[in-house]
Nucleic acid binder design. Structure first.
Length: 500
RNA sequence: GCGUGUUUAGCUCAGCGGUAGAGCACUCCCCUUUUAAGGGAUAGGCCCUGGGUUCAAAUCCCAGAACACGCACCA
């Protein structure tokens, strides 16, 4: 092996540790061992052994042979005791020299904290009660060259935890559990939808018009076509095209969306969302479906429908509350928007509860602002807020009993919006009108207003069946189900600025 | 984008004008039923970057960077 070039940023302490380990690596090679071998066959995960022998009493030895593999997290008494960690948990290796060949005794001295090894032996519980494997054979599976963070405090520097997630995962069981739970939640969600006959589809992430939501997009460029493309802010319009085409009556797209907005504890520039559409259904169906999905996933993944978030205890048990936007605002502020008709009256009402509005804001915009500022943070238990103003919902169908409203709901849990759904607007002529209203808003300075999408209207003109649509922000759902206060804790590699 | 914090050894943190400290990790010695840490002895630092103030700056001031938390924007 050639002399490796150390990173130029390396300090002398770091260099010393790394060089020492490289020296040990060459010693392994001198013993005829490849420190980076190809395979290893383990018989069991650590957690499986821990639970299988949970009842084994202290001091009892079995003759059951197992093999395990993982990372060395601690070495005590010159290698006699090693804590070995795999993704499921830890187990102690007991390597008494009387059980090891001379060669293995030599190799034991060449092990460091952080090395990956596989070990075989018999299961026993020590007199002090620690389940252990009495090692008769072990193999180096990967030499680690860098020192791990301190074992007691772990890695607490949040910046390093996000930038070097692999280190965080090695050191923090909480991080491992959270990200493992994320994966289970997404699997259960898919499984639930497959069970209901949904078809998973993929729609473009690179889009010539970033539609389906009100947000600023990222722009990128295709060289050969010499054209700008947008990273999608939502899959919505493409999914409904598939329903028009009759690919399936129930479709969903579960993937990343990108919004060029500020970063916060609840916002990452790329985030995971599921959008689903069901033909011949309306927003009432979507409410039922939202509740069922949350309840089922919580039960399957967490084993309970009662979750804790910070100081709040939240019940996801069905049925959830449903209240109209005007009801919700009335209950908290005493303002009854169902009896307010003019835009001017609405703005006065906002002023009376100290909500700032622009002189151009309409009845619907004012109502939405009051909800967001005065009501939203009080909605801890799950609740569907329904019947949104038409001007903030250009893709939703007009309410069957009030032309100022659309059939749309947003689900709030813990004060957050976690779902957004509507009876989809299927009338192509109405849709064109709504897009034109949006264009006027855009010209008036609203750079998040929806753009015209002629091809989408063409698709609607061929005929979209009555359709219910639902979007769920999965990162937030996962935050709720894992009691994570920051979205970065549920995203393995959150967006960060380069260090320098 | 604005405000407030944080940034010192590989990690976790003290120090807050007078040539840089601890614990763990590392190295060496001793030890073979320990478990955050078996016992002992070493070694390891452009104190985030760039300016200033001062006889003297890790420490005070100004600017910048990254990160965190609020606010703004939004899912």
């Amino acid at each position: 092996m050639n002399t490796p070039t150390p990173p130029s940023t390396e300090s002398s302490s770091q260099h010393h540790i790394r060089q020492t380990r490289i020296d040990k690596l060459t010693q392994w090679q001198a013993l005829g061992v490849n420190p980076y071998p190809y395979t290893y066959e383990k018989s069991d995960d650590n957690a499986v052994i821990q639970s299988r022998y949970a009842a084994l009493e202290a001091g009892v030895e079995t003759s059951d042979t197992v093999s395990v593999a993982g990372r060395i997290m601690a070495i005590r008494n010159s290698g006699m005791f090693i804590d070995l960690q795999d993704p499921t948990g830890k187990i102690q290796l007991f390597s008494h020299k009387e059980n090891l060949s001379d060669t293995l005794q030599e190799q034991l001295k060449l092990l460091d904290i952080g090395d990956l090894i596989g070990a075989e032996g018999t299961v026993r519980r020590t007199p002090r009660g620690e389940l252990s494997i009495k090692v008769t054979q072990f193999h180096l599976l990967g030499k680690s060259l860098l020192p791990l963070p301190e074992k007691y405090h772990g890695l607490t520097d949040v910046e390093v935890r996000y930038r070097q997630r692999y280190l965080d995962l090695i050191m923090s069981e909480e991080t491992r559990t959270t990200l493992q739970t994320r994966s289970k939640i997404i699997s259960e969600l898919r499984r639930s939808l497959f069970d209901k006959g949904f078809l998973e589809v993929e729609t473009p992430i690179l889009q010539p018009i970033a539609g389906g939501a009100a947000a600023r997009p990222f722009v990128t460029h295709h060289n050969t076509l010499d054209m700008d493309l947008y990273l999608r802010i939502a899959p919505e319009l493409y999914l409904k095209r598939l329903v028009v085409g009759g690919l399936a009556e129930k479709v969903f797209d579960l993937n990343r969306n990108f919004r060029n907005e500020g970063i916060s504890p609840r916002h990452n520039p790329e985030f995971t969302m599921i959008e689903l559409y069901q033909a011949y259904a309306d927003y009432n169906t979507m409410m039922d479906l939202t509740e069922e999905l949350f309840e089922t996933i919580a039960e399957k993944v967490l084993g309970t429908t009662t979750i804790t978030f910070g100081d709040n205890t939240i019940s996801l048990k069905r049925p959830w509350q449903r209240k109209t936007m005007t009801q919700a605002v009335l209950e908290v502020t005493g303002l009854d928007f169902s009896t307010i008709h003019s835009d001017a009256e609405a703005r006065e009402a906002a002023a009376s509860v100290h909500v700032h509005v622009k002189p151009t804001d309409t009845w619907g915009l004012v109502l939405e602002k009051i909800l967001e500022e005065k009501v939203e943070h009080t909605l801890i238990q799950p609740v569907h807020i329904l019947d949104y103003p038409k001007e903030v919902s250009p893709l939703a169908k007009t309410h069957r009993s009030d032309p100022r409203l659309v059939e749309r709901f947003e689900t709030r849990i813990n004060g957050w919006e976690v779902a957004n759904a509507f009876s989809e607007l299927t009338d192509p002529l109405d849709q064109r009108q709504r897009f034109e209203d949006q264009l006027r808003a855009r010209e008036a300075g609203d750079d998040e207003a929806h753009q015209m999408d002629e091809d989408y209207i063409t698709a609607l003109e061929y005929g979209l069946p009555p359709t219910g649509g639902l979007g769920i922000g999965l990162d937030r759902m996962i935050m709720l189900l894992t009691n994570s206060a920051n979205i970065r804790d549920v995203i393995a590699f959150p967006t960060l600025k380069p260090k320098h």
